[in-house]
Every structure is written in C-alpha cells, then in structure tokens.
Nucleic acid binder design. Structure first.
Lengths: 187, 187
DNA sequence: CTCCCTGGTCAACGCTTGTTGACTTGAGGC
DNA sequence: GCCTCAAGTCAACAAGCGTTGACCAGGGAG
C-alpha cells in the first residue's frame, strides 16, 4: 500500500471530487457511498465522517454559484454572447451544474435547488436585461440553456455535441437575445 | 376483499398504468416493483409475470409515438403553432414523454431511447420544414421543447407553469419557427 | 520515551430491493 | 360434478444498500 500521508482536507477533497464526478455521470440514486469511496481510494466510513450522509455529500457536491456577468448597458448581441460564453465555461470548468441538472429530474429536493439557482441567481442578473415581464423572459432563457445542455450532454445528440462555442453562439445566441429584449414577444 | 374478477388484460393494464404514473413522478430507480403492485392493487409477483422485469415494465411504459403533423407547405407561424399544439397535447394526454424525460437524466438506456425518438421520429418530420442543416435545426427545436418541459414540469418554475397553450405559442412559437426556417441562423 | 488526539480501518447491523418457485384458487369445457 | 389450466398468492432468497460503533495507528507535544 502506498499509504498516502494523513491529510484530512486532502481526503475530504478527494471524496468530494469523486462524488461530484459520479453524481454528474449517474445522478443521485445510482451512486453508492461505496463506489465514491473506492474511486477516492478511501474507506466508505470516511464519507460519513466528513459528510455525515449521502445527502450531505450531494448537497456539497451540488453547491453552485453562477457568477453571471453584468449585462446592463449591453446590446442584444453582446448579451447573448456573454451568456453563451459564461454557461459554456460553467459546464466546462466543473461538473456541478450537470450534477444538479441530472439529479433534478428524479429528486424533488434537487429540483428545488436548481429552481432556486434559476430564480435567485440567474433571475436577477437576466432581469436587468429584460424589456418587460422579467420572470417569464428569464425562465425562457433558462429553459433554452438547460434544454440545450440536456440534449447535448445528457442525450448526446451528435448535431449539438459537435458544436463549438462559436457555433453555439451563432445558433442559440439570437434566441437568448430575443427572449430578453424582443418587445413583440409574448401574449 | 372485493376480489375483482380474474382478468389478465385488465390487471396487466392496471400494472402498466400504475407503473407509468410512478415512473413519470419519480424516475426509474425510485420506483419499486412493490410500490407499483400496491398502487395497482396486485401482488408484486404479477409484475414479473406480465413484464418479466422492472426494466421490461419500464420499456413498455416508455413506449412513445410522437405522431407529428405534416409540416410541408406551411409558413413559419403555422409550423410553430402546429408544433406547440402537438407537444402540448402530448404532455397532457399521457405521461409517457415525461417518463422518458425524467429517466433519460439518470439512465443511459432511457437517454438513448429519447434520443432515438428525437432523431427517428421528430427529426424526419422537422427536416421537411428546415431550410438547411436539418440535423442541427431539428435538434435545436428538440432542445427548446424539452428544456421548456423540464423547467415547467420538472422544476415547476411558476412563470412557465402558469402559461396557457396560447401563452406558450406566443412565447416560444417564434423561436421554434426561426430554428427551422431562419436562413441567417447558424455559423 | 510516552501520551493522546485525530485520521483511518474493519466488520457488522438492519433494511429494502428485485426476483424466484412452490403453492392455491377460480372459472369454463367435458 | 369434475378437471384443468390460467390467474393469483405467499414466503422466502440473495444481494446490495446506507449507516454504525468499536477498534487501530501514527505523529506531534510534553
């Protein structure tokens, strides 16, 4: 056994990383504490020590801050580009949003958390760019972003999976811009 | 005990209905054969008798035919209205598509099935209305429809959940129309 | 060197799950 | 009235799960 040096924060981090990776791949229920511990090279009891629960591990693995850019004063095209770039980066830099997206489909708690992210983080930021009806417009932007991520990353549709960041900008950017700024939209 | 009359097709149907309802509410893994049997008022062994497997029950509960309308010769607005109406009805008349949407998030097999529905059923029908790049345009339409359903039905966002069919037409119809028919879209 | 606290191990528990096989019951054909 | 086969019941199985508590070890402080 290599028996790594004893380091609480390191093993805690290893468990959290392994958990996040598995939650992103398999959702909540298919992930077992034993499989997370195995991937982290750790005893299953360590998971309980640091996260008390499987739910506790998930809660921490799914903690998310969108940190959206300031959209005030930008034109429709610039808004769209900024949003596409930010979400593109968000999905690339960490699997956290994918964790939440996957789990939300089968867990009411996770769904509520993702809805909270949408309403409390994305909502206010997007509202600053909406010409009217900010709740509807922000939710529609969220629906297109999540739907795109779902079909691209979860279903793995080739037509969307093959798109580069520039492609995504060109294809869905205008939709996001219009959802926020088109005054003729809505009933 | 009321002891209903012995009727194979009736109990089979009761099991299938209960299974579909629970899969639509909870996804695949949270549903247990015992809970389905209980809701159907039947012994758990009956589920195995008629569907051999939990997977077999799911396969049958998730069988889906979109039956999209013929879009050829329609203008952009008519195309959008027809699509919104059809999917609105699809989600209302049966929980099957919701079953597939929920399960796809955590099961590769279900994801492949939903992707198959998208590529083999929605794809060809939508391609008849696409000005070019039919694969990309059809997938984008699918992403917006599934994303809308996800945020409305799974997350339960109030702004989308409160929309009537006419509201949905007015808000997302133009997006669907442009994804298919806007010649300036894409890279 | 010795204490002791923290990080880590181990084996087991109780429970639920999918699934099985042997059994019982009911109704229609002779 | 009885026989038979389909429909339905019952109890149990093996496996996997989350979780627990008692135990070991190792390294810095005195």
């Amino acid at each position: 056994m290599p028996s790594r040096p004893r380091d609480a924060t390191a093993t805690r981090g290893a468990i959290l990383d392994a958990g996040r990776a598995q939650f992103a791949r398999d959702g909540f229920e298919r992930v077992t504490i034993r499989s997370v511990a195995a991937e982290a090279g750790v005893d299953p009891a360590m998971v309980m020590r640091y996260f008390t629960n499987k739910a506790g591990l998930f809660t921490e693995a799914a903690a998310l801050e969108l940190v959206l850019p300031d959209l005030r004063g930008l034109g429709p095209d610039a808004i769209a580009d900024a949003l596409v770039d930010r979400f593109f980066a968000l999905f690339e830099e960490s699997p956290t949003l994918l964790v939440l997206l996957r789990a939300a489909a089968t867990s009411p708690e996770a769904a509520e958390r993702l809805l909270g992210v949408l309403l409390e983080q994305a909502g206010p930021a997007l509202a600053t760019a909406a010409v009217d009806r900010p709740a509807e417009r922000a939710a529609l932007v969220g629906s297109q972003i999540l739907g795109f991520a779902f079909v691209r990353l979860v279903l793995g549709a080739p037509a969307l999976a093959a798109m580069s960041r520039e492609d995504v900008r060109a294809w869905v950017g205008p939709t996001l811009a219009r959802y926020l700024t088109d005054p003729d939209l809505g009933p």
